[in-house]
Design a binder for these strands. Structure first.
Length: 559
RNA sequence: UGUCCCAUGGUGUAAUGGUAACACUCCGGUUUUUGGUACCGUCAUUCAAGGUUCGAGUCCUUGUGGGACAACCA
């Protein structure tokens, strides 16, 4: 992909340093290790792009590994969804791995640790163990079971494995140091009994390994050279290394854990727990609600995989706390959509416009460019007639110089059509405009090459022919939270910052060509924004999601 | 009251002891049959104070501020 010569962040620097110290480039191997207990979100997307991006940069494999050591929380539906999301993002893994595939190796190594006096069975309650653990500022104390004999430990551990004991009766702990300043080193639990069927191993196992015991050893088994994770795992590194020390063969690759700051995006939350609360409380309609920053939500909203990848690359990677402005994501989204989305005309807030000097029954098919950024997209036909719809906000009876749109006595261009001049309007009893009247210049048709067609007018409006218009449902989404960082407030719960106006559903009038669009297709409603066809669409009614609006400098002037 | 991590414009990253760079946002402008796109321009001497050095964003010290760590979760 890119030439591997220069580090663009501290993560790559670590790799180059290892390469310079003799590590061979063709041994490089990375991994993305999600737990299949929920749906992936934008934060995972960054991690995916980092690890798979490294694989591309160095031309080396990346494994997708499910960290499935907790049968109480994990389900195979998440395994499937995660694979779909990674694929959709455009990446291919080398090996599809499961930590559960390593249960036997892990168990055998654990037995060895017991024999070496490096692990013991503790028979206290979890409360007792917790209280003996001390606190970040106070050292822990040794368990009364810490010095059980190897024989007793072996027998007990085997009993745990065979299902002789219930949950919480015994756990296997590593014998490290209860006085360590690092709480993770205070005799961490390696195994616990769980009486639950695992989504892959069924009831084969009664004991399940903990994260710390599993992760580094899994990396080692897969011969991962660099195991990158978020900063919250930094204190785990000492333990990661300690566990590796117990089993590593010096002739094999010893994996290295390094940490980076998770990347936060403003006006959203990215923890499974919080996303789940949004779903359960009914704030959103599901995990793939277009307002959700899950990958499935973003996909349904109309985000492109390329825009997510470009975003991840452009924001870089470092170790300090960050909150990336949503604008940044939207920039990359518009940048991509501008190139790939065909243009279409759709009026969101219609008001009738009558061209008084246009023949009553005439219908013309006008040629409209599909995408001015891409000639290969060609043209489509749009019907034009005497009665049209335009946006209500595109007409004012009187307007100042800054208003480029239609007003009485002024001219504007109808996109792909004619130049028209405002003549008057009809109002109802409340003073609301119900119909606008204008005259057109028959010689001014777009693309005709006539002198009149080349005249410069300040404004251009989109429109649809009233008789041909297709009513469509449009879901206008706004940011889900009212503040940039909803989950960092010391007093208030993030749910208090939910934007109650994050969805507005309207019926709009679209040009006939939208009937041909397939679910998932993105288009630009000209002068408005990017929209995609939602899966809720039916034969009778097309449903569009607003992905993101166009940049709107007029809104700023008008405000 | 411990251990560890971090600190560069409004935002995110870069600068590997040698003139603070790039992108986004904002603001201003050019082009335009999308008030879109594209293009151009303005906006920081790097948390503070000392020190080392010919030279410090970078190294050292001390502060200040922010963050992580006490699940039989990952």
């Amino acid at each position: 992909m890119s030439d591997a010569t220069k580090a663009s962040n501290f993560i790559e620097e670590i790799i180059y340093e290892d390469l310079n110290n003799g590590l061979s480039q063709d041994t490089l191997r990375f991994r993305f290790p999600p737990e299949p207990n929920g749906y992936l979100h934008i934060g995972h997307a960054s991690a995916i792009c980092l690890n798979f991006g490294l694989g591309e940069k160095f031309g080396q494999p990346v494994n997708l590994r499910f960290d499935d050591t907790n049968p109480a929380k994990e389900e195979s539906k998440y395994v499937d969804a995660i694979q779909e999301d990674v694929k959709w993002l455009g990446y291919k893994w080398d090996n599809l791995c499961y930590a559960s595939d390593y249960f036997q190796e892990l168990y055998d190594w654990a037995v060895q640790l017991v024999k070496d006096g490096k692990a013991y069975v503790d028979s206290q309650s979890s409360e007792e163990i917790a209280s003996q653990k001390g606190s970040p500022t106070e050292p822990g104390v040794d368990s009364p079971y810490r010095n059980r004999s190897v024989e007793e430990n072996l027998a007990l551990f085997e009993g745990m494995k065979n299902g002789d004991y219930g949950e919480s009766e015994h756990v296997l702990r590593a014998k490290i140091n209860m006085q360590s300043t690092n709480m993770l080193m205070r005799d961490p639990i390696m195994y616990r009994v769980v009486n639950r069927a695992h989504h892959r191993t069924g009831t084969d196992w009664k004991i399940y390994p903990m994260y710390d015991w599993t992760h580094g050893e899994s990396d080692y088994l897969e011969q991962i050279t660099h195991s990158f994770c978020t900063l919250e795992f930094l204190p785990h590194r000492e333990l990661y290394d300690w566990f590796l020390d117990q089993i590593v063969d010096p002739n094999k690759i010893r994996p290295k854990q390094r940490e980076f700051a998770r990347r936060n995006v403003s006006h959203t939350v990215t923890s499974k727990r919080k996303l789940q609360k949004l779903v359960e409380s009914g704030v959103v309609t599901g995990w793939d609600d277009p307002r959700m920053t899950t990958i499935s939500g973003l996909r349904r909203r109309g985000f492109t995989a390329a825009s997510l990848r470009n975003f991840a690359t452009s924001i870089g990677i470092a170790k300090r706390d960050n909150l990336v402005d949503l604008n940044h994501l939207e920039f990359h989204l518009r940048e991509d959509l501008n190139k790939v989305a065909d243009r279409v005309m759709c009026v969101l807030d219609p008001v009738k416009l009558v061209i008084t000097n246009y023949p009553d029954d005439k219908v013309e098919m006008l040629q409209a460019e599909n995408n001015q950024e891409d000639d290969s997209r060609g043209f489509r036909e749009v019907p034009f007639s005497k009665e049209l719809y335009i946006e209500r906000e595109d007409f004012k009876e009187e307007a100042n110089k800054k208003y480029f749109r239609l007003s009485i006595g002024k001219e504007v261009r109808l996109k792909n059509g004619y130049i028209i001049k405002g003549e008057g309007c009809i109002k109802d009893a409340n003073g609301n405009i119900t119909e606008i009247h204008a005259t057109y210049d028959p010689d001014s048709q777009s693309g005709s090459g006539s002198e009149a067609s080349l005249r410069k007018v300040k404004g251009t409006l989109h429109w649809v022919s009233a008789a041909h218009a297709v009513p469509v449902e449009v879901r206008l989404y706004d940011r889900l939270f009212t503040v940039p960082s909803p989950d960092t407030d010391k007093e208030k719960d993030f749910m208090e910052f939910v934007n109650t106006d994050s969805l507005e559903v309207i019926t709009a009038m679209a040009e006939p060509s939208v009937k041909e669009l397939e679910v998932g297709t993105s288009v630009q409603f000209q002068r408005i924004g990017y929209f995609c066809v939602d899966k809720d669409s039916t034969e009778e009614k097309i449903v569009f999601n607003r992905t993101v609006g166009l940049r709107d400098t007029w809104a700023k002037i008008d405000a």
